[in-house]
């Protein structure tokens, strides 16, 4: 029973929480982004596991979960490029990428 849907979901939950810890607890902005990438990967694993578990249906293969995973990968790539450009722009102005120093919009 190791290859049931639940073991993949538990794996996704573990990865998501590790990524959440990384995104919440890091000072370096690039590191925060790496945590977010791990979280997106965990969600992708969950979606693909659901898609694979419910693949057999009356109309052939059900692949909606895998389509969603493709869209998540697309948006993650766009997000990574814009976020890293922002980090480099911030570094150029302030000579630091410490997210605890960047508090201009905090009240």
């Amino acid at each position: 029973m190791l290859l049931s849907l639940n073991s993949f979901l538990v794996l996704g939950a573990l990865l998501f929480c590790i990524g959440l810890f990384g995104a919440l607890s890091k000072r370096n902005a690039v590191s925060v982004l790496m945590g977010i990438e791990i979280m997106l990967n965990a969600v992708n694993i969950t979606l693909v596991a659901f898609s694979s578990a419910f693949q057999k249906s009356a109309h052939g293969a059900r692949l909606t979960g895998q389509i969603f995973a493709v869209f998540i990968i697309t948006v993650a790539a766009a997000e990574a490029s814009v976020a890293l450009a922002t980090i480099i722009a911030v570094y150029r102005r302030r000579n630091s990428v410490d997210v605890t120093d960047i508090n201009l919009m905090k009240w």
Binding site: C17, L20, F21, L24, S25, K26, S31, T100
Partner: peptide
């Protein structure tokens, strides 16, 4: 250090562990 933790690291670990336990309990 090029990758330090911030002051909320303990709280973040607690939140992540709670969320993980919650998801696995729900499963």
């Amino acid at each position: 250090s090029s990758n330090p933790l911030n002051r909320q690291a303990l709280i973040a670990a607690g939140i992540a562990a709670l969320l993980c336990a919650g998801i696995i309990f729900a499963l």
